[in-house]
């Protein structure tokens, strides 16, 4: 565990907590894309399937449980919570996210490290995570009023993968040259998608 990866995990955790706080404190999810939250829930379920089979560390297991339960809680709130669900802008959140799931799945069938169920699920979750933010970015560009908690949520989410890229660079030079091309390419695409958001976020 290196500082970049720990910072990345903490930034990622913080982004989820900011979103949970916003929804819980304001009892509103206006400006939040439910589709992006659903995609993240699929990403975590597909990637953390090994939660019960491979024990890596207490930290690793605890964080996996936290990410799965928090993303499920956010989706539940946006779908079932009587007050919150009313504030969801269904007409604005129109990105066809099924296309993203299908594309990531096809990519994972073609480009994976080994043609096994686990590796294909892992690659699928990496590809899907790279594009999961798209519905949210589209919603932000449509909505005039980006409330600052939602803006901070997206900012921390962009920063987390940027830290992971630094982590991969660090591990490349310290741990030998594992083939990380799936993580590299997806991580760069993922962080790149935030570029225009960061540009406007800082300009505002």
């Amino acid at each position: 565990m290196n500082a970049f990866r720990f910072l990345g995990d903490m930034t990622h955790l913080f982004s989820v907590l900011v979103l949970l706080l916003k929804i819980y404190a304001t009892k509103s999810c206006s400006g939040v894309s439910r589709k992006t939250q659903e995609l993240y829930m699929v990403v975590f379920l597909a990637r953390y399937m090994d939660l019960f089979t491979d024990y890596i560390s207490l930290y690793n297991s605890v964080m996996k449980v936290v990410f799965i339960t928090s993303s499920a809680a956010i989706v539940w709130c946006m779908r079932r919570h009587p007050q919150v669900r009313r504030t969801y802008d269904k007409e604005q959140d129109t990105f066809r996210h099924v296309v993203l799931v299908a594309a990531a799945f096809v990519l994972a069938l073609i480009f994976n490290e080994r043609f096994t169920f686990r590796e294909i699920c892992w690659a699928f979750s990496i590809y899907l995570e790279a594009v999961a933010i798209l519905p949210q970015l589209v919603l932000l560009q449509r909505g005039r009023n980006v409330d600052n908690l939602t803006g901070q949520y997206v900012f921390f989410l962009g920063a987390y993968r940027a830290f992971y890229i630094l982590n991969w660079i660090y591990r490349y030079f310290t741990e030998g040259h594992h083939s990380r091309w799936i993580s590299w390419l997806s991580g760069l695409v993922q962080t790149g998608l935030y570029a225009d958001f960061f540009y406007y976020y800082f300009l505002r």
Partner: peptide, 10 residues
Amino acid sequence: DCLSAPKDEL
């Protein structure tokens, strides 16, 4: 050594 990427990351 193109070992597969370790899955110890979140």
